[in-house]
């Protein structure tokens, strides 16, 4: 007898179809741009450019392995298509699970993270579209947002996201929180490799610290 497909199986089937479609669609964009402008891109220039972005290719692999258990299956298929994962999709998913009191890696967690990330994508896409069109039509608006009054504030958006997320998480899990913050600060005192590298460092150190504390029965 054929085994009935679980919700997770179905999510993976839908996700694969959407991601492969996205891949074909996104690759067709530079093709369309080249044809539209009647130009033939030079292979060696593209090769050199992609080689310069090698760190992003490596980061891409690390992100898939590190983030997918936290984002859930549906959340991962959505997040990697729409981007802005760590500054937007991930905090959204964590906040929604906290509010709904569900755990990651459960079916309830899967449902809630998918709903949260999907809602975030629709709103973000619309807000970016409206804001960019407003900027394009009205350069003075653009100057105001880029002014010394507002630009430094928007520079801090990410910190307001993680400050508010930290409030709930660190209070609840303070024992395992001190070590990773201190360790990443120490790393930063010597070298700042950028947030793309700092995140895996933070996640690995945090999990390592928590594992040791678990073994020592401290948590």
């Amino acid at each position: 007898m054929k085994k009935e497909k679980t919700y997770f199986d179905k999510v993976h089937t839908w996700g694969r179809i959407w991601v492969v479609a996205a891949l074909v669609f996104f690759l067709s964009i530079p093709v369309a741009v080249s044809i539209h402008f009647g130009v033939t891109p030079r292979g060696e220039i593209i090769g050199k450019g992609v080689a310069a972005l090698i760190i992003f290719l490596i980061t891409g692999i690390v992100e898939v392995i590190a983030y997918s258990p936290m984002l859930g299956a549906g959340g991962t298929y959505l997040s990697f298509v729409s981007g802005n994962i760590m500054n937007l999709k991930m905090p959204c998913a964590i906040n929604a699970m906290e509010n709904a009191k569900v755990k990651a890696n459960t079916e309830e967690g899967e449902v809630i993270t998918t709903i949260a990330i999907a809602s975030s994508i629709v709103v973000t896409t619309i807000v970016i579209a409206i804001t960019v069109i407003a900027f394009a039509l009205n350069p003075s608006f653009s100057e105001l947002m880029a002014s010394d009054t507002f630009a430094p504030a928007f520079q801090q958006v990410t910190y307001t996201i993680f400050g508010s997320l930290a409030a709930g998480y660190f209070i609840k899990h303070w024992k395992i929180s001190i070590f990773p913050i201190a360790a990443v600060v120490v790393v930063l005192l010597f070298v700042d490799p950028g947030i793309g590298v700092l995140i895996p460092i933070g996640v690995i150190l945090s999990m390592l610290g928590a594992h040791i504390m678990y073994k020592l029965k401290l948590v």
Binding site: T158, L165, P180, A183, V185, D192, S206, M207
Partner: peptide, 13 residues
């Protein structure tokens, strides 16, 4: 711990 590691990276930054 994984969530905290992610948050820690930004807090430390």
């Amino acid at each position: 711990a994984a969530f905290i590691g992610l948050i820690s990276a930004f807090i430390a930054k």
